[in-house]
Write a protein that binds this DNA or RNA. Structure first.
Lengths: 379, 379
DNA sequence: GACGATGCTGAATCTTCTG
DNA sequence: CCAGAAGATTCAGCATCGT
């Protein structure tokens, strides 16, 4: 079992000593000034659940005249769109400074604020990777019957710049977990309620917009690796911290209200981290070491002079000693020649070309696994 | 059966004579200048499908090397966000002038443009009533496996001012059509394909972004009454006109391209208006919800680290936090790993793998019924 | 005609490494 | 930084064709 502490030691870039003790802590204060305590390029992912700028215009009552406990806290009040926009720009810029260039940022919001946040993200040159819809299984009904039931919230997933190409996305794991079809942009989760919802000594909810842990788990399993650092600049009740600890990720939280900080600390303290074996992330071919075709020839798995064909034996080529293929006067790499014989621009020669194994055609890709198994044993 | 002509007569405010002959026509031209032909406060609903301002890199090929026919039309090209914003402000203001104070406006977009549109709507003092998610049953996949599949588009439904309170919303009709539960903000429809998709004489699609009629039908059934006037400032292939005529509403279209105008005219000409009783068939059907394995993990019904076995306990595997299974150095989806441990090509992991429920082995498929019970309430 | 195999397509900001 | 090469990557629905 890999403990959270040993994960820290394994991470070359981040260590508790170098981090100024901010790792796995909650920093009290306004998020822009609090983030000044963090060095540049120090976090892998930002998850932000900013104030929604709700404008309900008076109390909301259910049909039975009971009062709906709406979000009307002081921290959620802004004088104008301009004030909200300035606030948004400030915290986004502060987050980008501490975010690694290959990191990504998540923001969640509703129609009250998400359009402003999205437009500002684009204005600041963030690059939107996806917008994600969280569909709620159990949303609050629309009591007035004058609109559609507000049954979803929107997340934006963005790279800090248009050139950010090396971001983490655990595509293969998500696909395998999703019954072998790729994960879509619409997710279904219940809202946070029942035992998961933090309550104070009076039985009242501690935080008005506590997010479900399943939502954060999906986000972290998709866009982080074990040992990564997740920053939450609006920490609230600490869902980000609790999920990060459970999944073997590090967290940094920023929060202004002492009540929330106290509740989050106690909550995270009680979390039991999962063991190392359960945290391994499934990877696909992309993560495998590269093996060049001539390695197969040099190792004798394929002999010079051998004939390769496509799966239907419509095209054939001869293997040359230098690791290239030749066919009808043309020669080139397995990829180039595969493309050429098909009249295409590109081709994956590993899956296109097959060898004859006692009458059965098998892709030459199968032979790479032999080489890779050897490489794995040698370290 | 209500004919279109009698609907006109029933409408006190709009008559063909007073309308200057623009009712149920397509006006050729740029939408801002074309709308100058319409009087103030003359339409009940605006449906706008503006250019999305896609910013495509190079050509995109499917894994089989076929080329994706991208939206690279000139009308979707803008020099900058500033240019797109100015364009957006101009058409929104032109639409608001002709929109009745108690009318409403719909805009559809994707993450490329919808955040800008939404923020500008708010800046112009439109009042957002809902954001609506159109979930596509059959979206295009993400071919490179570097992001989530882009499986939805977003609509914004707004009132022209914060004081617009008398807008039409057929709450009870929608609820009745939705198995007596409130209509939610997430809608499911297939993309427009098959016989509904307009093709030219070469068999090519007439318009690259033709919207499904079911989507427009939902919109009109929700926010208009028979005889109302629906303006579409980006008329394209005329889906708005076709659905308006079928549902006994009036339309006005604005379109720049003669090709689209010709196709839309012929299309609308062929439409047979329906009677009110047949309209419920347009609202779309719900399918049995698909539940993937990761939903069980994320919901806590199966915990990471849990051991699954086959019915006779001959094979076992451990559940990982990413929603995959691992066994003897191998990892994969419940289906892949089930096949692998049995030495088979395929396996239904839902019936193969079992969990231990107090000494009794039960197939993990049983746990899906719990989730489906939750989802059933969503409609 | 029925049925399976094969092919085509849809609003898409869709790779990564080496030299 | 750029050019070039390696090589990884798709889901649902509909149309067409062959048996």
């Amino acid at each position: 079992m890999v403990s959270l502490k040993s994960s820290v030691v394994l991470s070359a870039e981040i260590s508790p000593a170098a981090s100024g003790r901010w790792l796995d802590t909650i920093i009290k204060g306004d998020c822009v000034s609090a983030l000044e305590k963090l060095p540049d390029n120090s976090v892998d992912v930002v998850f932000a659940d900013p104030p929604y700028n709700l404008q309900l215009g008076g109390a909301l009552h259910r049909p039975d005249q009971s009062l709906v406990d709406a979000v009307d806290d002081a921290w959620d009040q802004f004088a104008s769109f301009e004030a909200y926009d300035a606030f948004t720009r400030a915290w986004l810029l502060a987050c980008r400074r501490v975010l690694k260039p290959n990191g990504t940022l998540w923001v969640i919001g509703s129609y009250h604020n998400i359009f402003r946040v999205g437009a500002i993200l684009q204005d600041l040159n963030f690059w939107i990777l996806n917008d994600i819809v969280w569909r709620k299984t159990n949303p609050m009904p629309n009591f007035k019957g004058r609109r559609f039931q507000n049954a979803h919230e929107t997340l934006i997933w963005a790279s800090p710049s248009a050139k950010g190409k090396g971001y983490t996305f655990n595509y293969d794991a998500l696909k395998a977990a999703n019954d072998d079809v790729q994960m879509r942009s619409d997710w279904v989760f219940p809202i946070c309620s029942g035992g998961e919802r933090l309550k104070d000594e009076n039985g009242d909810k501690v935080h008005p917009t506590q997010k479900p842990e399943a939502l954060l788990a999906r986000i972290m399993m998709a866009s982080t690796r074990p040992g990564d650092v997740v920053l939450d600049p609006f920490f609230g009740s600490g869902t980000t911290g609790a999920v990060a600890k459970r999944l073997g990720r590090h967290y940094v939280g920023v929060e202004r209200e002492q009540t929330y900080i106290d509740a989050a600390r106690a909550r995270i303290e009680a979390v039991e981290p999962l063991g190392g074996a359960t945290l391994s992330v499934m990877t696909g071919k992309r993560a495998e070491p590269r093996v060049a075709f001539n390695v197969l020839v040099e190792s004798g798995l394929i002999k010079p002079g051998a004939i390769l064909t496509d799966a239907r034996r419509r095209h054939s080529a001869i293997v040359r000693a230098d690791g290239t293929l030749a066919s009808g006067g043309e020669a080139g790499s397995i990829h180039r020649l595969g493309a050429k014989v098909q009249g295409l621009d590109a081709c994956n020669g590993w899956t296109f070309w097959h060898y004859d194994d006692g009458g059965v055609l098998r892709p030459i890709d199968d032979l790479r696994t032999v080489i890779r198994a050897d490489m794995a044993r040698m370290g």
